[in-house]
Amino acid sequence: MSESEVVNATRKWVEDVVVGYNLCPFAKRELVKDRVRFVVTEAGTEDELVQALHAELQLLEDQPDVETTLLIHPSVLQNFYAYNEFLDTADALLDYLELEGIYQIASFHPDYQFAHTEADAAENYTNRSPYPMLHLLREASLESAIDSYPDVDGIPDRNIELMNREGADKLKSLLKACFSEIENKRTGE
């Protein structure tokens, strides 16, 4: 899969699922302002992914006009449990670079599973994405958005309720649809 295909599938997921279902009430504004950076790393190992993460954090430091980065890594950490363990490494990098409290890393994965849920539970789709990715967020911007949003603490429960209402089959179809343009181009439709 080419880099543009990975970005297109991810962008479609952000538009149709994250923004479309208002899972993150702050995402639409940044997407419309074109302040979301979609970047695909060719990292094939965890060490290479740490290097890519470091480079992206440096880019955010150097370019304040980039609000947030989706660091998509389709070639490493396909297994959700290994991915989940890697999040400790990502947080350790923030600490090592003295960027803890400045940036935050949110996690998304095709097989995302919250603790104490079944693998096929609809609520897992709040964090299921076409590819494994790390979402790098500026904490100051996040805090500002949170301060101006009513009932921010209710967002997770509202999202779980919404996902459960939609049902896992529909959500699985939505995620699969992120790849439909790619498949149509390949089959000549």
Score class of each variant (00 low, 15 high):
V36M: 05
R37T: 02
R37E: 12
R37M: 06
F38W: 06
F38D: 03
V39N: 02
V39E: 12
V40Q: 03
V40D: 02
E42W: 01
E42H: 08
A43M: 08
A43N: 08
G44V: 10
T45K: 05
E46M: 12
D47E: 14
E48P: 08
L49R: 11
L49D: 06
V50C: 11
V50E: 14
V50S: 13
Q51P: 02
A52N: 08
L53D: 05
H54K: 12
H54I: 07
H54P: 06
A55K: 14
E56M: 06
L57F: 07
L57M: 12
Q58G: 05
L59M: 08
L60N: 03
E61T: 12
Q63Y: 09
Q63V: 14
P64Q: 13
D65F: 08
V66D: 01
E67Y: 08
T68P: 15
T69G: 13
L70K: 12
L71C: 08
P74A: 15
P74S: 15
S75D: 15
L77Y: 06
L77R: 04
Q78I: 08
Q78W: 02
F80D: 00
Y81D: 03
A82F: 00
E85Y: 04
F86S: 10
F86H: 09
D88R: 09
A90G: 14
D91F: 04
D91M: 03
D95G: 07
